[in-house]
Design a protein around this nucleic acid. Structure first.
Lengths: 268, 268
DNA sequence: ATGATACCAGTGGTCATACCACGGTTAGAT
DNA sequence: ATCTAACCGTGGTATGACCACTGGTATCAT
């Protein structure tokens, strides 16, 4: 009945289009008129009430769904939900991905998270966490000769470690940066796994870490993890001598010979 | 019939609808094929290329724009951008409106980052880092009686600490996370600052941390930071109660003899 | 030649309509 | 009473048209 009037009024208030819809929904969410679990009006009705097309409303809903403010369920409706830290993971994934020049530096974030998580784990971890860690440890042993599956099992163990810390934020951050590292680290493992004695080290060291967590000895666990990363980095460096094409190009910009190879590569 | 076949084919290729578009763009962004500043194809062309309608593509772009992965500019195009902190503010607003225990957990991420950063700082920090830390320390002393400016100075000191670690990833993560916590911590500081002796503690403790970094003593620095957060959390919990004063004296006393007592810490 | 102005092509922004796909409900068959 | 199938309301997608903004270009007056 007041469709025309409301449109004019909303325009006058600067609430036109997409921005207006987002502003309106934000207002509803923040003021508490829409609580978690509430169901929004159907898209068709809501779009009509706001005086915008259904498409624009949908764009706004998708945007809000991306940050976890609402959940859109096909065939059911749009439900107000509480943003959790997993949406932060999405954010950091994109944020870090654009810092391409320092992809290796992301390892520092991983170390930081794991170190704190293992401390927390020694305090908080429960039986379920121990079981999961034991299972992942078993997977490491089983896949020790397969570069790809082994690398995956390795990651899964550390993931379980962070999980045992019980901090949703750390878990979310870790999984997001882990996906970034997998790209560059998984392929190196094929070389790493060739190094003499590496398999025994991997199995033994992961087992020691596991035992330290079970013993709830934060000091030992922390120390083990420190060495774990140091040795891991060392192995990666050593293995790098075989196929260090990428590393060479980075550090040898002053060499004409290398420069020539680069050009040849690029021209081809 | 043909319609059915084409639908099946697209599904089989994993490029179905909205989710498929987001997945495609995510892949492009994370793999580095799309770098910051790049301009996406026009909506009409890109939607045609992906085999979806323009509306669906727009929903995906709006969603990515919400988390800051891209920037949509009317009359110009869609540009790849790097998510910044302001994006997180948006998320945080919604998260806070529904439930607030998320904040406390984010503190775990901050602790993790600072701990690793201070270790790195003890190895990597240069004169510029020392200078910056000294400057921020001076600011803490200067603003010790102003809750707002004091809280800001506190944050800036810790920021300089992480900066001294020299890891761009840690710096990026930290600045995002820290700004999130500022909201909830600043207001509490007004109470905290009232506690008897808190000012001396803040100045003294930050100074000790600074000295540990200059001395490049990672062990002491790490231990100091652990105490710093424990005491800080303790004060925040007891912000309303004046009984925290006594606890302060104990904690402050411990910090003075920490070097001779590193092993007798928190084994319950 | 120079500056300001008007124009135009390309881009995102919005709208309307039609139809498809999924989930929960309900009426029917067994 | 139970299971099955049709149904309805919801979100999901497609198409085509048109509007609004931006940036560059051509034109004009100085």
């Amino acid at each position: 009945m007041d469709g025309f009037v409301s449109i004019v009024r909303e325009k006058a208030e600067g609430k036109g289009g997409y921005e207006g819809v987002v502003a309106y929904l934000r207002e509803q969410l923040l003021s508490g008129e829409l609580k978690t679990g509430d169901c929004l009006l159907p898209e068709r009705e809501l779009s009509a009430r706001l005086g915008v097309s259904r498409q624009v409303l949908r764009e706004a809903l998708r945007a809000l769904a991306m940050i976890g403010a609402v959940e859109i369920r096909h065939g059911v409706g749009t439900i107000v939900s509480r943003p959790d830290v997993s949406t932060l993971g999405e954010f950091f994934t994109f944020a870090l991905a654009q810092q391409s020049e320092v992809i290796d530096d992301i390892m520092e974030a991983r170390i930081a998270i794991e170190h704190h998580a293992i401390r927390l784990a020694c305090r908080r971890a429960g039986q379920a966490d121990f079981d999961r860690l034991a299972e992942r440890l078993y997977d490491i042993v089983e896949t020790i000769r397969d570069p790809e599956a082994g690398g995956h099992a390795d990651f899964r163990f550390h993931e379980a470690l962070v999980q045992a810390g019980g901090s949703p934020t750390l878990i979310s951050l870790y999984s997001s940066i882990a996906s970034l590292m997998m790209r560059s680290h998984l392929d190196r493992r094929e070389q790493i796994i060739q190094v003499e004695g590496i398999r025994e080290f991997l199995i033994d060291h992961h087992r020691k870490i596991f035992e330290a967590i079970v013993a709830r000895d934060a000091g030992v666990a922390d120390e083990l993890l420190t060495r774990h990363f140091e040795i891991g980095a060392d192995f990666r460096r050593r293995a790098g001598f075989r196929s260090a094409a990428a590393n060479l190009r980075n550090s040898a910009a002053e060499t004409n010979i290398i420069q020539g190879e680069q050009n040849a590569d690029r021209d081809r």
